[in-house]
Amino acid sequence: MTDCQTHAPETAPAAARPVPARAQLANGCVPGLLAVMAEAPALAEGYATLSPIFEKAELSETERQIILMTNTRLTGCSFCMVAHTTICGRKGAPDDVIRALRAGTERGDPRPEAFCRFAVVINETRGWPSDGEAEAFLGA
């Protein structure tokens, strides 16, 4: 794997500096993923633009994190897993829920499980769920 340079706000390319700077103010540190993304200003800007849009979705913080942690597990992104594990913990998710999301195991709660299953479907079908899969999710 290629080693990527990580950046603090002061070492990032000028066009990317606002992204790690905002992250540092919000979190007390620059998460690893953003520290690497800062090497590519357009990528950092894209992430910083899309994240607040996702927060506007009519989902609870827990539901958003379920989707993000499921996607993180499926893609194998260690930076993302650390970040979303931390966020889940800060938002009050119980440790057993976090462990289940990290491992991809079911917890038995129907609504969160529906989010997990549909996130898997979206990943596996590259955004093209069947009508039945979409209906099953919407009916949950």
Rank of each mutant, 00 (worst) to 15 (best):
V121H: 02
F54H: 14
T11M: 12
R126H: 12
A35D: 04
M37T: 12
V120A: 12
A40N: 10
T86W: 03
T86E: 04
A57R: 10
P129Q: 08
R111P: 02
A114K: 04
A35P: 11
A100G: 06
E63K: 08
P9W: 15
L138P: 06
E39V: 06
G92P: 10
C77H: 06
A103D: 09
N71P: 09
P41V: 00
I67T: 09
K91D: 07
W128H: 10
L25N: 15
N27G: 02
R102S: 08
L33H: 03
L34D: 02
A134V: 13
D95T: 14
E133M: 03
D95Q: 14
L34K: 03
V30Y: 00
S130A: 08
T49N: 06
S60F: 02
G89I: 11
A21N: 14
T11P: 05
S130W: 00
A103Q: 10
T105Q: 02
A42G: 04
A16F: 03
G89S: 07
G108E: 13
L34P: 00
R73P: 05
A15K: 05
R99M: 09
M1C: 05
I67M: 05
T62W: 12
F137N: 04
N71Y: 07
A119I: 04
C88W: 04
T125A: 00
F115R: 07
K56I: 03
D95C: 08
A134K: 08
S60G: 02
G92W: 01
A8M: 10
R102H: 08
E63T: 04
M1E: 10
A103R: 06
E61C: 13
T2I: 12
L25V: 15
G46T: 10
P52L: 00
A44T: 06
L68C: 11
G28E: 00
R99H: 12
P112L: 11
T70R: 02
I67V: 14
A44H: 09
G104K: 00
R22Y: 13
M1N: 06
C116P: 05
E133V: 04
A12M: 14
I67R: 10
L101G: 07
A83L: 12
A136E: 10
N123Y: 01
T2G: 08
Q24L: 11
L34F: 06
D131S: 08
A12R: 14
D96F: 06
C4H: 15
C88K: 03
W128G: 02
T2Q: 11
P94C: 01
V121C: 01
T70K: 01
A44I: 03
G89L: 05
G139S: 15
A48L: 02
C88N: 11
